[in-house]
Deep mutational scan, measured.
Amino acid sequence: MDCGICYAYQLDGTIPDQVCDNSQCGQPFHQICLYEWLRGLLTSRQSFNIIFGECPYCSKPITLKMS
């Protein structure tokens, strides 16, 4: 499936590997796309290497662990 942010399947050789945990959403994202999206939200917060925010599609909580 394509990334829900950039709408591409491959981005710099990677495929969407982050998925919204909401079973009714399940939208996939590239890690870098989701990172940039969450960084741009005023409501997002970060604790060590984990960013907490809202899914761009369903607005439910989503987390991103940076590797």
Rank of each mutant, 00 (worst) to 15 (best):
D2I: 08
D2C: 09
D2W: 03
C3R: 02
I5W: 01
I5Y: 01
C6D: 02
C6W: 01
Y7R: 15
Y7K: 15
Y7Q: 13
Y7N: 12
Y7P: 00
Y7T: 11
A8F: 02
A8S: 15
A8E: 14
Y9T: 05
Y9A: 03
Q10V: 12
Q10T: 13
Q10L: 13
Q10E: 11
L11A: 07
L11V: 11
D12L: 07
G13K: 03
T14F: 06
T14M: 14
T14E: 14
T14I: 08
I15W: 12
I15L: 12
P16D: 02
P16L: 00
D17K: 02
Q18I: 14
Q18C: 05
Q18N: 10
Q18D: 02
Q18M: 08
V19S: 10
V19K: 12
V19F: 12
C20Y: 03
C20P: 01
D21R: 07
D21S: 09
D21N: 06
S23T: 07
S23K: 08
Q24E: 07
Q24A: 06
Q24R: 08
Q24L: 07
C25N: 00
C25R: 01
G26H: 10
G26M: 09
Q27L: 06
Q27K: 06
Q27A: 07
P28W: 12
P28L: 12
F29W: 01
H30D: 02
H30G: 00
Q31N: 03
Q31I: 12
Q31E: 09
I32F: 13
I32Q: 15
I32A: 12
Y35S: 10
Y35L: 08
Y35T: 11
Y35Q: 07
E36K: 08
E36V: 05
W37Q: 12
W37D: 02
W37V: 05
L38V: 07
L38K: 04
G40E: 15
G40K: 14
G40R: 12
L41Y: 01
L41P: 06
L41G: 13
L41V: 09
L41W: 10
L42M: 08
L42G: 07
L42K: 15
L42R: 12
T43E: 10
T43S: 11
S44R: 12
S44F: 15
S44M: 11
R45E: 07
Q46S: 11
Q46D: 10
Q46L: 09
S47I: 07
S47R: 10
F48N: 15
I50E: 15
I50G: 12
I50C: 10
F52A: 15
G53M: 01
G53E: 01
Y57V: 13
Y57M: 14
Y57T: 15
C58K: 00
C58D: 01
S59I: 05
S59L: 07
P61V: 03
I62M: 11
I62F: 07
I62Q: 00
I62A: 03
T63E: 13
T63L: 07
T63M: 06
T63C: 15
T63R: 10
T63K: 06
L64Q: 06
K65P: 13
M66L: 07
